[in-house]
Nucleic acid binder design. Structure first.
Lengths: 337, 337
DNA sequence: TTGAAAGCGCTAACAG
DNA sequence: CTGTTAGCGCTTTCAA
């Protein structure tokens, strides 16, 4: 393999008979250059296959154009969509996303740490559990951080969030409207800000209305845990006619478990409500009633927030709320039409 | 916000009473330093919250540690898993993945182009359609490229691939073994190397065995196209008892379409076989028979190939094959047990 | 082992 | 409008 040295601005300058700085001016668009020089430079650059070295540029401007994109559970439909949209938007705005994936705080810390070495212009965190000390570290280095669906105590960061109270309440309202009388809610043992939050609010709504509510606690929040929840559900004896599953993945697992393993009819024997409205919820075989949160919109909001903060680091912190809306499908008896 | 300047190696040097070069040597591990100096430097670095600037380092070494990770259809279960694993492995090996997502060649070209500006150490392409000229450009700049599931004519790149012939044949064998007599195969109009390939081979196998085969052509290869395929299937009149769906997403859509819309029994009225073994194929409600290709293994292979090439740019190009295996579930009548 | 000095490739402030 | 110059922060020869 011929190991050609990459051409530098110097090479281009020589070819175009100008100084390197002229090359820089012509190519970066900033600064004044005569039309003629610009053309000569561009032509020379093309001929040489020259491309600006962003690392060098970044070194000078203190801004590499790199943005950290931190995500856990990337193989989950909701998260995958979110990351895809975030990456797309970032790219469209001229940034370049550095993808960090990790489960577990320990690994995350080390990796985010590495991001900081790249002088990232900002960080988009959609992880379930970004350790708080990392956020602090970013703050210390004045690296903008946008948190998606994360509770942060001291809150010195822009955030895109679900309204937890509204979410739990909407779930309750929907199930009530569908005729539910005695409820259950799935609250994973592995806590997560939004999921545990809406489970809690839902239960509170039930209690406030003096309606019975059973809390079922699967391990985590995936399909398989929904299956586990179905088992747990069968093992307990309280009569329940409506279940809020807090996550579509949980709901789908629970649904399959009840239908396939225990031969229950949904929604006749039991009504089921999910949360997220992932693509699979709408699949004909599932036809899951759920609450839609717009992952794409959330991601775009996050990117906007990030950009705004990069452009004006001193603006006040903003918290954007992700819109949610009821999606009535076949696992509930109510249909608004 | 207090806009602190980041400490540089110079600051650390001053604090530790040594020269900057000593700091570099102590922190990068390369070069000899006395134990005492090393300790002083490390302590000072910690105190100052100093971190090496990888951009500057990269500028010097011509190697930023950045690796391009190019993926289309990231919101698809199979791809999401693949990207997750690839990113994880890259990170584990000390690289940092720059995520490029894009549908459509035009956008891709521009974005990959941008990658090159970052002096990436390599590129992992799992896109459906990486334009050939880009590969050429990378070669020109001697940037290692690893292609996942891509056919490239001139083949001057490492690749991780499915065996198309084996895939089509295995599908045929499975469906035959399950008692299929007259077949159909879903071949998306939007061609893709592996999907179109195995569809073609499957059809050839049928013809070679003098068995009837109908080709159904939905638009693309997603769930919704599977639904469309069900419609197309009903619109044609040839009797068919087994369908190879070429993609799990297609299969799941097709399955739902046939069951829910047309009330067919699967596998009694029709046997269905998917391909990929995405997570959803194993969900109880779907229980799809399929052919498993190990996305995670493929991603890991790709990363290994990439690393090997970076370490030795002159090694001969390698083509690794992704292992496949039959997964018998409920949408076929055959069970090997 | 350590310090001095020369870049890596680029940009921006300053003269001309 | 263009050339000169001085770095950005780091690594790595080369002497000492």
């Amino acid at each position: 393999m011929t190991r050609k040295k990459k051409p530098t601005s110097f090479d281009v300058a020589r070819m175009a008979n100008v100084h390197r700085s002229a090359v820089s001016r012509a190519l970066s668009g900033t600064g004044r250059v005569s039309e003629e020089t610009r053309e000569r430079v561009i032509k020379a650059a093309q001929e040489l296959g020259y491309r600006v070295n962003y690392l060098a540029r970044g070194l000078h401007n203190q801004n590499s154009g790199l943005v950290g994109l931190v995500a856990s559970r990337l193989d989950t439909p909701y998260r995958a969509l979110q990351v895809k949209v975030a990456a797309r938007e970032l790219l469209a705005k001229g940034y370049c996303p550095l993808l960090i994936v990790a489960e577990g705080d320990a690994a995350l810390t080390g990796l985010i740490d590495r991001l900081l070495n790249y002088n990232v212009a900002g960080m988009l965190v959609t992880s379930d559990s970004p350790p708080a000390d990392i956020i602090d570290e970013c703050k210390r280095l004045s690296v903008p951080v946008v948190l998606v669906n994360r509770d942060v105590h001291d809150a010195e960061a822009d955030r895109v969030q679900l309204d937890i109270t509204a979410s739990g309440r909407l779930a309750f309202d929907m199930l009530r409207q569908a005729g539910g009388q005695s409820f259950a809610v799935l609250e994973p043992q592995e806590k997560t800000y939004t999921v545990s939050g809406r489970a809690r609010v839902f239960a509170e709504c039930c209690r406030a209305a003096h309606l019975p509510v059973t809390v079922i606690e699967p391990q985590r929040q995936n399909y398989i845990d929904g299956l586990e929840a179905a088992e747990l559900f069968m093992a307990q004896n309280t009569p329940v006619d409506a279940v809020f599953c807090t996550t579509d993945l949980l709901a789908l697992g629970f649904l399959d478990g009840m239908r396939v393993r225990y031969n229950w009819q949904v929604p006749q024997d039991l009504q089921i409500l999910g949360y997220d409205d992932i693509e699979q919820a709408g699949w004909l075989g599932n036809n899951l009633s759920t609450i839609r949160q717009d992952a794409a919109a959330a991601a775009m909001l996050a990117v906007d927030l990030m950009q705004a903060r990069i452009e004006d680091p001193d603006r006040t912190f903003e918290v954007a709320t992700i819109p949610i809306s009821p999606v009535w499908r076949g696992t509930t008896r109510y249909s608004p039409i």
